[in-house]
Design a protein around this nucleic acid. Structure first.
Lengths: 150, 150
DNA sequence: AATGTTATTGCATCATTAGGCAATAATCAC
DNA sequence: GTGATTATTGCCTAATGATGCAATAACATT
């Protein structure tokens, strides 16, 4: 429960107030690290613990958690939006094919230099940075099947 | 009108059928390259040319255009979803702050090596690849203001 | 423990996006 | 051109997500 306490302290330091719904959601994410959770599952889970939770409560809490770097959102082409615990983890990155939705996890070492460059050249800083690469996998690559492509 | 014809040929080769709504949308994107257009503007524009267009027509066409690499979607935290013509352009990338929504255009040279790495190491191939970096800008960086962060 | 401040929730409402189905129209083959 | 094939559209309906406002509850201060 150490992680949990750390998180609570951090969130409070950012002005959040710990309510039952936030407690439950945070515990859920801690118990489901590295999973990709659709919002429906979050809502169902919360509903089991609090009767008559409003749907807006989920959306607003998710939004706060994202902007504080607790979780990240992945918009998977064929699946929809899913949420994943990322707080304190090393940089994440995924390659998501815009055509077929195929998703690969990134190669970690390669992008440590990218991380550094982001920090040095741009205004983007360390920690809790997540990258989503939306492109085309080789099967779907648009330029390999047609000569009309410029 | 050369670009237009090229595009039509390309899209047809992918199984799309050229309908009035697609023609108009494509011409719009060609006339508004490099702009970030919200879907509302697309709908309003299309409505001016075709009376009683259904909203679904927009959404479905946008979806197709994206998966064929004609346009890309940017989900800007404070703005919403915008669409941008990217067909045939060099790789695009943006840095979008998850907290304040600030957006920077990326440094081109730096990421040519990334592009190569993507191709070599992962299953992601050249051309029409766009990258969206969702992170935190230095002003919003979560780890600089609190000691509770792990 | 009582109080004041303000983040949070619920409620109602609306905007956005998605899916199924039948009718329509764009393309292909002849 | 004529007809067959099938992507596309419109319509309807439903799911998802966002917003304003008043009531509530969490937290800091005393």
């Amino acid at each position: 429960m150490k992680k949990h306490a750390e998180l609570i302290t951090y969130l409070k330091s950012k002005g959040l107030r710990m309510t039952p719904s936030k407690e439950i959601l945070i515990q859920f994410f801690l118990d489901n690290k590295s999973r990709h959770v659709p919002i429906k599952e979050l809502y169902d889970y919360l509903s089991k613990h609090i009767e008559d939770v409003d749907r807006t409560t989920i959306y607003r809490n998710i939004e706060k958690f994202i902007s504080l770097g607790l979780i990240q959102e992945l918009d998977l082409p064929k699946v929809g939006k899913v949420y994943q615990y990322v707080f304190g983890k090393k940089m994440h990155h995924y390659y998501i094919c815009k055509s077929c939705g195929k998703m690969n996890k990134g190669n970690a070492e390669l992008f440590e230099k990218v991380e550094k460059a982001l920090k040095d050249i741009h205004d983007f800083s360390k920690a809790n940075l997540s990258m989503l690469f939306y492109g085309f996998c080789s099967k779907c690559d648009i330029s390999t099947e047609s000569e009309a492509s410029p």
